[in-house]
């Protein structure tokens, strides 16, 4: 187990290194940040000075090595735009995104599993057909469009929920989150649901497929032949088998939620990492983009590891092997 984890972390370090290399050179190819940063009326001497200050006068290879040296000491460079350390900037925006992603994940589980289970147990029931039709909509409607429609309906027409922003936050158990205030929750509801929509549909379909398959397995019939109550047959025997694929997929999806909630954050003006990323990309703020993607790689690796460990808890047939992945 320990060897397994160490191996994983070493692999992760390699991936992070490769990632930084690709992104570092990639962003350089897109364009010259100087054009974006400098006042067009500045004279040549000023431009020279600015280039020197940002370290952009050096060959790109040297810049990269300089960057790596900084990373080794925890310095990811300063944002070209804000002049603040890139890492600090990202960590500052992280809680808002984590909060959004977590809420979306919880919604996906709380809504997706019961609905999927119902649809799987009673495939011919009209309600099941409605659930499945709804999940197709959830899959195929574009997130940005649904987000806009939600704003029109709930914020403009009905006026129930605020359209943008994060709202008040409160500190509880050392965590600062808008989930602890009424105002914060009302701000959180729409973006979280918007972000969760796709995941809910995914969970519904996974759960339903799992339930329909497991229903006809001998161990379910045997559990019934033992005289167990339906609640236990479904809640323990069926659900525990279904959870294996659901947990795997949800784990990976959680990484996606964290890394790429860009669209939802932009629409609802949610001050998270996604919004920061898109702004940094537009302004070719290389240190922020590189640092962001490196952090995301680390997050993905950690989530994958957590899923693997969870998997081995759920499915006793899976033992984490000391070798390989």
């Amino acid at each position: 187990m320990t060897v397994f984890i160490i191996r994983r972390l070493l692999q992760a370090a390699l991936v992070v290194l490769l990632m930084s290399l690709i992104v570092f050179f990639g962003v350089n190819v897109i364009g010259d940040p100087i054009d974006m940063l400098i006042n067009p009326e500045a004279d040549q001497a000023e431009i020279e000075r600015a280039i020197k200050a940002l370290g952009l006068d050096r060959p790109i290879g040297e810049q990269y090595l300089f960057f790596l040296k900084g990373v080794a000491t925890g310095d990811f460079g300063r944002s070209f735009i804000f002049g603040e350390p890139a890492l600090k900037l990202i960590l500052h925006h992280m809680p808002a995104t984590v909060e959004l992603a977590l809420t979306a994940l919880i919604l996906a589980i709380l809504i997706g599993i019961p609905l999927g289970l119902f649809a799987g147990l009673y495939p011919d029931h009209p309600v099941s057909r409605a659930i499945m039709a709804g999940s197709i909509l959830g899959f195929s409607l574009p997130t940005f469009w649904v987000g806009l429609m939600m704003i029109i309906l709930f914020a403009v027409v009905l006026g129930w929920l605020p359209a943008t922003g994060r709202g008040d936050t409160a500190v509880f158990l050392g965590i600062k989150s808008s989930a602890f205030t009424r105002d914060g929750l009302s701000h959180l509801a729409m973006p979280a649901l918007n972000l969760a929509l796709l995941k809910i549909s995914l969970v519904i379909r996974l759960t339903r497929a799992g339930a329909r398959e497991a229903m006809h397995q001998d161990y379910i019939k045997f559990a019934r032949a033992k005289g167990l109550r339906t609640r236990r047959v479904i809640g323990v025997h069926l659900l525990k088998n279904i959870m294996i694929p659901v947990v795997t997929v949800l784990g990976l999806e959680f990484g996606n939620l964290l890394a790429f909630s860009v669209v939802t954050e932009s629409i609802f003006a949610w001050p998270g990492m996604g919004k920061l990323l898109i702004e940094s990309l537009l302004q070719l703020d290389r240190p922020v983009v590189v640092a962001y993607l490196m952090i995301i790689v680390v997050v993905f690796v950690i989530i994958n590891l957590a899923v693997d460990i969870l998997y081995s808890i759920l499915d006793p047939r899976v033992r984490l092997r000391e070798q390989g992945t």
Binding site: Q217, D218, Y219, K221, H237, K240, I244, L314, D315, P316
Partner: peptide, 16 residues
């Protein structure tokens, strides 16, 4: 009570 045909399939794989 009933005993089933295939013992590989009748016990739930994820429960002790």
């Amino acid at each position: 009570a009933m005993i089933f045909q295939d013992p590989m399939m009748t016990l739930n794989p994820v429960l002790r």
